[in-house]
């Protein structure tokens, strides 16, 4: 699968969706491609920064806000992004993603990551989700927050065996249920695990990230900015000197560089509703990344503020 989206394809998608006139202009100078990391179970490469949809894409029927989301998705693909992640828990986010994909002419680079959540009928929920996205199949399906994970994993592994799914994963967030997650990672042939990790939430470094490397499990990092709390706390604070050689022009970029430079991390999925932020996020994975001593310094700088 290609890792970049031709600008002409994006423009054609806009026209196809009748959205070209209403959307902000997205054509701009081609930014360097973000770092691609390897999914251990298949050796497939994927950009180290994806797009989360938690809260930001739950805009209901608001036509203007939906257009903003389409513009974010367009900028995301244009900057070389691939993985979009959502969940049945996220209100209208799935429908908004689906409408966005349609408006953009079903971008080929899409890596569709979804979740199965509280439903007792996992297959029915997955099918409803697939229709909302308007995709033939998902690349990755994850058990959301480990809810009913035994039954849901059976469903997902059966789908993978039948060729209806490429990857299987489980998710947690904010450090919840790490003990149980570790047991599942050790016992099940997972392709992906999703968890929270950033310079101030580093518990995953102790056992989960090493285990992921050992077991060949790709890692998706959610809540990289602590749902905006971390970047809000750092706002107005001068960047440390170590940011410049890394090419980081904001705290958000420095945080993302810290996250994706961990050898076990495959992709971080910051959520945003702003085009400039999505470009900034992907650019963070395009420049130099910190080595281990510099990562330690980044965390120390952020923790002390």
């Amino acid at each position: 699968m290609p890792t970049t989206l031709d600008r002409r394809t994006v423009a054609a998608g806009f026209l196809a969706g009748g959205a070209a006139a209403a959307l902000p202009r997205v054509a701009r100078a081609q930014a360097p491609a973000p770092l691609a990391k390897t999914i251990p179970s298949t050796e497939e490469k994927i950009p180290a920064v994806g797009l989360g949809t938690w809260i930001t894409f739950n805009v209901g029927d608001d036509a203007d806000l939906r257009k903003d989301c389409v513009a974010v998705m367009a900028a995301f693909f244009e900057a070389g992004g691939r993985m979009i992640d959502s969940s049945p828990m996220y209100g209208s986010a799935q429908a908004v993603v689906g409408a966005g994909l349609e408006a953009l002419g079903s971008p080929k680079p899409l890596f569709a990551a979804e979740k199965v959540w509280t439903s007792s009928d996992g297959p029915a929920q997955i099918e409803a989700t697939r229709k909302l996205w308007g995709v033939p199949r998902f690349d990755l399906l994850q058990v959301h927050n480990l809810l009913s994970w035994e039954a849901h994993l059976d469903t997902l592994f059966a789908m993978k065996d039948a060729g209806k799914l490429r990857y299987v994963g489980v998710t947690t967030s904010e450090g919840r249920r790490h003990g149980e997650l570790e047991k599942i990672m050790a016992a099940k042939p997972l392709d992906f695990v999703q968890l929270t990790y950033n310079p101030v939430d580093r518990e995953a470094e102790q056992r989960l990230l090493p285990l992921a490397r050992e077991r060949g499990i790709a890692v998706i990092v959610n809540r990289p900015f602590q749902q905006g709390d971390l970047t809000a706390r750092l706002e107005g604070q001068p960047l440390p000197a170590l940011a410049e050689p890394l090419g980081a022009t904001s705290w958000a970029q420095l945080i993302l560089k810290f996250i994706v430079s961990h050898p076990a991390v495959t992709s971080a999925i910051p959520a945003t509703s702003r085009v400039d932020h999505v470009r900034e996020n992907l650019a963070a994975a395009a420049g130099p990344l910190p080595d281990e001593p510099t990562r330690t310094k980044i965390a120390a700088e952020i923790v002390k503020l």
Binding site: I55, T56, N58, V59, G60, D62, D64, L65, M89, Y90, G91, S273
Partner: peptide, 11 residues
């Protein structure tokens, strides 16, 4: 909290 304040107030 499933939405940003802007979405809620616009609703």
């Amino acid at each position: 909290l499933l939405f940003v304040p802007r979405t809620y107030y616009r609703l």
